[in-house]
Structure formats: C-alpha cells, structure tokens
Computed example of a mutant assay.
Amino acid sequence: MSIHVNGSAANQPQSPEDTEFDYSQRAQWLRAAVLGANDGLVSVSSLMMGVGSVKDDIKAMLLAGFAGLIAGACSMAIGEFVSVYAQRDIETAQIKREKMLSQPGNDDQEVIERSEVKLPSPGQAAIASALAFSVGGVVPLVAAAFINEHKKRLAVVVVVAGLALMVFGVVGAVLGKTPVMKSSSRVVIGGMMAIGITFGLTKLIGSDGLQI
C-alpha cells in the first residue's frame, strides 16, 4: 500500500515546485529591469524637478535630465556587471568546495560551467540594467520637451512620473506574483517622496542666494 502511494506521489505533476523554480530563475532579470526602470524614472525626474525649482529655462531642465540619464545608465551597467561577476565568483568557489569534498581532483572547468548555468552573463546583466534605466529616464524627458510654460512643465513631469511609477509597480508585481496594490503603492509613494524632497531642498538652497 505504501509503495503504491509513493509511486503515485512520484508521478504527480511538480507544478508548484516548477513554478517556484521558474520565478527564482528570472528573479535577477526582473530585479534588474524593474529597479533599473524605477531608478531611471525617479533619478531623472528628481534632477529635472530640482533644476526646475530654481530655473525657468527649459534647456537647463532638459540638460540636467539628459546628463542624469547618461550618468545613471552607465552607473547601473557598471554596478550590475560588478555585482553579477562577484556573485558568480562566490557561486564558483562554493561549487568548487563542494566538489572537492565529495570528489577530490575534479576539473575546474566543470565547476566554472556549472556556476555559469546558474547566473546570467555579467555583460548581459549590465546591458539590461542600462537599457531599463534609459527606458525609465526617457519618460520625463519626453514629457517635458515640448512644454514651454514653466509651471505646466513641472506639473506634467510630476503627473507623468507618478503614472509611470504606477505602471512599473504593477508590471513588477504581476511578473513577480506579488500583491499588486502593495507593490505599486510602495513604488509610487517612494518615487514621489524622492522627487518632492529633491525639489524642496533644491528650492530651499536656491532661495538662500546660491547662484546657479
């Protein structure tokens, strides 16, 4: 009787485990894409709002946003490259230790190949992060590019940033199978706080006589 139960259990579909495994496999890409897009949107929007708090010139806002876009994309790419490479080195060392204990004298090449299967390529992760950051950062730049009136331009940047943050939060929650309302709310509130703090502090410094 017990043998029959064990056999039937072994033949049962492994869908819950397989599903969990699939999500863990794409967790790094999901993290890089969602965080990159959110960072790009919040960073560029905050820079533009900060400059816009003390300067009416549209060129100053756009230049600040563009510089932030380039700098942020490069920073994300380098950071992701270093992070994935470091994680791969740790995984390689761990696998090597385990194989040395179980089967002394194993080939190092086999160890490296096993570690590379578990982790994405550092180069691919860097490119993905840079592209994700750029996608988020382009949103406020495009929104502000064709609005000449200063106050309307600021309002449009805030509204567009809030809507984009909501979209990114929902997409991240759906792909990661997490609660949509909680995830998107955290993203929107956190992003709006960053934009508001940057705007307020920059305006405060500018109002105290700092010439920009």
Results as ranks from 00 to 15, higher is better:
G169P: 09
S2L: 11
L131M: 08
A128L: 10
S53H: 06
A33L: 09
V34W: 03
E17V: 11
T198W: 08
V157E: 05
P122I: 01
V180S: 06
I95N: 11
A143P: 14
V142Q: 02
E91A: 13
Q28S: 10
A33R: 00
E17L: 14
S134E: 00
P140R: 01
S102Y: 15
M61D: 03
G162K: 08
V170W: 05
E98Y: 15
M166K: 06
I195Y: 03
V34N: 02
S102T: 14
F81W: 12
G65M: 01
A143N: 05
A132C: 09
A60H: 13
E98C: 07
D107K: 06
N11H: 13
E149M: 09
V84S: 04
L175S: 10
V160S: 00
R114S: 14
R26C: 04
R88P: 09
G65A: 02
V51P: 07
D89I: 10
G209S: 11
W29T: 15
D89C: 00
S183F: 07
M193K: 02
V160M: 00
N106M: 15
W29M: 14
V159S: 03
F81L: 03
G137Q: 00
G162M: 12
N11F: 15
L210V: 15
V5F: 14
L69S: 11
K203V: 04
A132W: 04
A86K: 08
P140W: 01
S24N: 12
S43K: 01
M48R: 05
Q109N: 14
Y23F: 14
L163Q: 04
V170E: 03
A77F: 04
G72I: 00
V84K: 10
S75N: 03
V139H: 04
K203A: 08
P104L: 07
P13W: 00
D57H: 09
T92D: 13
A37E: 00
V187E: 03
A9W: 15
V5W: 12
T92F: 11
M76T: 01
S115G: 10
G162W: 07
T178G: 07
S121T: 07
I147T: 14
D107C: 06
V180P: 05
Q103G: 02
S184Q: 06
D18H: 08
Q94R: 07
N106A: 15
